[in-house]
Design a protein around this nucleic acid. Structure first.
Lengths: 229, 229
DNA sequence: CGACCATTTGATATGGATCAAGCGATGTGG
DNA sequence: CCACATCGCTTGATCCATATCAAATGGTCG
């Protein structure tokens, strides 16, 4: 397996607060692959990590917080293609430039890796190459699931979304959402009002509870799974 | 570059009419990669090429005709994830089983390749491995564009669709669609009636002409591009 | 406390879905 | 060769889910 681990310091393209850390010895070669070392870095809520069209010089792994990756349409509509949560790798493009923009959902720490270093490693080690391919394939899988989401009703989209978040945040029945209603709306292809109303109705049917707007309790996975369609 | 060419005979998993052909000597190693040989095969309109969940033993390249790849939701809704046209490769999955089903849009000829052979080749030749990764990346790109499509209005979706088809069929201003209105609807996340009405309206605004239902003339790319949003 | 931002709630509008019928092309059996 | 069934597509009438516009509420931070 390819493991992208903490470490070392590294300069990033822009004027961002880099938070270097002492080298941790805990990275190790695993099977045929070699770990690659990343520089820790922090982003404030809504801070841009990279922009669409920029040179894809780096690759990122979320340590804490969360990231939205999105595209804008000329008229201002925004489509969030994916959310990345702790443990997720993002920014891996096959072309030389980013096809989307990325921003931090909230105070977020990531590890930054030089794309060229990773690609060089892949050239030497076919296990690493396979792993990179696998990452792209999983992204494809995710995109295809997203397409399937977008043909469902608002209720179904929200149910799917909540179940997905619970799984990815690996919390059993409680979700602490790192993103706003607007982010959810732009991910699900809905308006903020529809998201809000739909959540309220899900609460009404006691599928979920909403102790606070970002904190959601999945009361009945059975119901949500059924709605998930 | 990895080139998947005609050739050889090969048995396919199921009882399909295989149309073997004499070996053509015209495959050649290109750069670091070696060509791989595929068996020609034909499928009738609406014939299944593979089903969701089946073992992904083969990989396909369209020679003529067209293919739809789709997923079904439990309640019968169908989402077409992609259309494949002459020159396109499909059926390449990272996992061992197909995530979608594939069917011929019309009488279709393909070349069939053993997945295991292609993967073995990729192991030997990192150029081939890179090419496979690139194919997956292009699929991802396509899926992301598809997501963007699904948040647009019906008119925009149709405009984008027609422009895409014209490009992919590499016809300047005329498109001979290989797929039905229902296929288009399931690709665009609309109903057949909306597709039909929207095309009629596009004709009304002289953005297109409809000499016959499958034959569409792009009268004004300017208008279509604008609608494309 | 007051300003600001995120979220909810309400009233109304609308694009696309649904239900239903008609139409033209294609094919089949008598 | 025609009568009729079938299929794919279009068109019409109506309905409904979600968008839009607008305002109220609540939570957070200086």
């Amino acid at each position: 397996m390819l493991t992208l681990t903490t470490n070392a310091l590294h300069t990033h393209t822009s004027s961002n607060r880099v938070t270097p850390r002492p080298s941790v010895a805990g990275h190790h070669a695993l099977g045929a692959s070699l770990d690659i070392i990343g520089a820790p870095m922090s982003f404030a809520r809504n801070e841009e990590i990279y922009g669409e069209g920029e040179n894809a010089e780096y690759l990122y792994k979320v340590v804490s917080g969360g990231v939205r990756v999105y595209k804008m349409l000329d008229d201002g509509r925004r489509q969030i293609g994916a959310f990345y949560l702790p443990g997720d790798v993002f920014g891996l493009e096959s072309g030389d430039e980013h096809g989307s923009s990325a921003e931090a959902l909230c105070e977020t720490r990531v590890l930054v890796f030089k794309r060229s270093a990773v690609l060089a490693q892949a050239n030497r080690d076919s296990e690493v190459a396979r792993e990179l391919w696998g990452m792209t394939a999983r992204e494809l899988q995710r995109a295809q699931d997203h397409i399937l989401l977008l043909i469902k009703s608002a209720r179904e989209r929200l149910a799917s979304f909540l179940l997905e978040m619970a799984t990815r945040l690996s919390t059993l029945n409680e979700v602490e959402l790192p993103m706003s209603r607007q982010d959810i709306a732009d991910y699900l292809g809905l308006t903020i009002e529809t998201v809000s109303r739909t959540l309220t109705r899900l609460e009404g049917s006691s599928a979920i509870a909403l102790p606070s707007s970002r904190h959601i309790v999945l009361r009945s996975r059975a119901v949500l799974n059924r709605l998930d369609s």
